[in-house]
Design a protein around this nucleic acid. Structure first.
Lengths: 222, 222
DNA sequence: CGCCTCATTGATTCTACTCAATTCGGGTGG
DNA sequence: CCACCCGAATTGAGTAGAATCAATGAGGCG
């Protein structure tokens, strides 16, 4: 199950600037480390679990980011969620994973083997409900909003999940963003460019966006 | 909170033909009636709870159907889920409802006042996980599938949630279906017509669809 | 019978997709 | 240090699919 995870994390430069430290600060969240657990290190794009596998654990992101996704037969991909430091993922209703989970960049993940549910069920329920709310919010974005509104919502969401104001780190590629928002990479890129030309954002580099006018972006979403 | 719910259910013709009886058979599901509860009857389109309200209960559909939805500022609506007999809804992460819940047609709903969580948390978690899986599956449909694939998935889903083969009852209007699938009513209607002309379904009336070729519909979805 | 709402069908517009061509950025090796 | 390479991102041109605008048709109820 963890074949692709390096057992000896080569922490050459796992921490970049600013934001990753902010993530680390947020990490000690709901699940307490007094549960039996194991900390795993994953290289970029390493598989954490696959669709169809038995669900035997819950996962807490320590640093880095994770994408959950499914594939259609013809290769179309839908990312249902990104999870960043401090968030829990991996619950399934029938003991089987219905999605793939992969590290977006290098990621460190605390794995809680089951059955821990009897003791920390309240935390499990809280995490599941948080995921449910997130999925439902995302349904609204994908179902009824246009490209600009989707990208605006995404940027604001990423901004709020990081503690930094304005400078948002995007651990994921444009392809990831497109598959998350139900758009093509071209549309994502064009929308970024339009936001830039309207003075709403500054594209520092491909993975860093500075939010210049959060109010206008917010007004687009709702 | 329950202003629009009739306290004395006038059960003149609440049960229609076949399918509703099938729903009733499926009703006694996860939540046991030995919890303190109250059975409420709702007229069509009656509000069960509103966005922003305090979440004080869980809801088990006895018969009928319920829609959960949110509105954008300009009136666009996204239905995140339909719930039919035997299903539980109403959990929220932070004690506040993030969605509206309304009866689609006449509906009967068992209301479990909190805090019952301490005793039946396992059932609550199971129901929340079921809702999560459903929302995630729906994300895939809305994010990456075209109109025909969405409608096909919807029809198959409704068929599987009813015990009847082939003849599917649709308690909801075309507008509801559109707002659930992220499509306009015109597109929904056109897609139904295309399915009919291809011999995949028979449109018995506006609220009844006979599935003639489930295999082809299934092949469209994945 | 007529009214009203919902559903269907048609004509047109527009958004986002597709296909294609550069451009950018990071890494490697000379 | 610089030239080169490769994948990712951006930009452009044309197209397809769903939305929009509009008209007609089908039920349900007073």
């Amino acid at each position: 199950m963890f074949a692709q995870a390096a057992t000896a994390p080569k922490l050459t430069v796992p921490f970049g600037a600013g934001q990753l430290h902010a993530e680390v600060r947020r990490a000690p969240a709901s699940f307490s480390p007094d549960q039996p657990h194991q900390v795993m290190f994953y290289e970029a794009n390493a598989e954490i679990y696959a669709q169809g596998e038995q669900a035997t654990a819950l996962y807490l992101v320590e640093f880095g980011a994770v994408r959950l996704y499914r594939l259609l037969a013809d290769g179309r991909r839908q990312i249902s969620a990104f999870h960043v430091a401090g968030e829990v993922f991996g619950f399934e209703a029938d003991g089987q994973h219905h999605f793939f989970a992969e590290a977006v960049g290098q990621a460190c993940i605390r794995v809680f083997r089951k059955p821990a549910g009897e003791t920390n069920w309240r935390q499990t329920l809280a995490a599941a409900l948080a995921a449910l709310v997130r999925a439902q919010e995302h349904l609204l974005v994908i179902g009824r909003q246009n490209a600009a509104e989707r990208v605006a919502a995404f940027l604001l969401d990423m901004m709020e999940r990081q503690n930094s104001d304005c400078a948002v780190q995007l651990p994921m590629s444009r392809t990831d963003i497109g598959d998350y928002l139900g758009l093509t990479i071209e549309t994502v890129s064009r929308t970024f460019s339009k936001f830039r030309s309207r003075g709403l954002v500054r594209l520092v580099n491909t993975r860093t966006v500075e939010i210049l006018d959060a109010a206008t972006l917010r007004a687009m979403c709702d």
